[in-house]
């Protein structure tokens, strides 16, 4: 009898969780209870990071410092040009009367080294609703490319789905010629599959894929992956194209959260992504 009650209760919970947003507060409450467990599991890797940071020789620090300084100089020089190009871009877009893209706000978060569901590709980050104004399906990047997006926000932590998760798909375009396609995860850590490309599509091994900005979740122009395999079989309707993610999905510890912003002077019709703008400050 008690089993029957519990089964009914869990099925209700699952349905509510799958279809609606009503059990979010239960989830958030329980997440605070289990946070110490996550914290404890993260502790050893945190400690290793701390020791490697603390016990380095003066020589290697100096070396790292000088290489970082050189890199900083180069990046700054590139940025000078970038500022000019951005201004020019805004000006040209105004001439075209199309919506203008302005700078995006970013926040650095850290991954907790804990494992989630072994059959999915998800990560936990150390930012939650308590201190930061995150929103569901907010993009997550690392220094090299797109990592994924946020699915659940808890008071102290949040969980994000990676682009390699079998349930995740992402609108992308080939940087070389603007060919648009969809990159779906395969569940394996360094492989994405590109859907609906005909056998004669202009795509080659080594092509860089960037986000296309369609779908209004990811801002346009971030690197996603590099094409590794193009397999055309005339008997199949579409080519089998595989790509390797640009982001270091299994190695990054620091990730960037992005608040994309779109401002538009003209009607909303031409700014289909204004939904994200309302949530961004």
């Amino acid at each position: 009898m008690r089993l029957f009650l519990l089964v009914v209760l869990s099925i209700t919970l699952m349905t509510l969780d799958y279809r609606t947003d009503t059990v979010r507060s239960i989830r958030a409450g329980l997440s605070v209870i289990v946070y110490p467990v996550q914290y404890l599991v993260d502790l050893p890797s945190n400690f290793i990071n701390w020791t490697t940071d603390t016990f380095v020789t003066r020589h290697s620090l100096q070396e790292e410092n000088s290489s970082l300084r050189t890199q900083n100089q180069i990046l700054k020089a590139q940025l000078q040009k970038f500022t000019f190009i951005e201004a020019e871009n805004i000006h040209l877009r105004e001439l075209l009367q199309s919506s203008r893209r302005v700078g995006e706000r970013m926040l650095i978060a850290e991954l907790l080294s804990v494992d989630l569901d072994p059959f999915r590709r998800q990560v936990v980050i150390n930012k939650g609703s308590l201190n930061d104004d995150l929103y569901v399906s907010q993009p997550l990047l690392d220094a090299n490319g797109v990592m994924g997006k946020i699915v659940h926000i808890y008071p102290l932590t949040s969980t994000a789905i990676l682009i390699t998760d079998p349930d995740h798909s992402l609108p992308v375009q080939v940087a070389r010629n603007g060919l648009r396609t969809i990159a779906v995860g395969t569940g394996s850590d360094n492989r994405l599959k590109l859907l609906y490309l005909p056998n004669n599509a202009d795509i080659q091994v080594g092509d860089k894929l960037i986000t296309s900005g369609l779908g209004c979740v990811f801002p346009a122009g971030y690197p996603v992956a590099t094409v590794t395999t193009v397999n055309t079989n005339p008997s199949l309707p579409f080519a089998l194209v595989l790509a390797k993610p640009a982001a270091k999905l299994d190695r990054s510890r620091e990730v960037l959260l992005v608040w994309p912003s779109h401002t538009s002077k003209i009607k909303k019709m031409q700014a289909p992504c204004s939904r994200t703008q309302e949530k961004a400050p």
Partner: peptide, 25 residues
């Protein structure tokens, strides 16, 4: 008993970020 097991399953659901109630059931 099964009550405790259900509660633990619910905590595991939150830890693993799966559908709430899946492990509990």
């Amino acid at each position: 008993g099964i009550g405790v097991a259900w509660g633990l399953g619910l905590l595991l659901d939150v830890l693993r970020d799966t559908l709430l109630g899946q492990h509990a059931l």
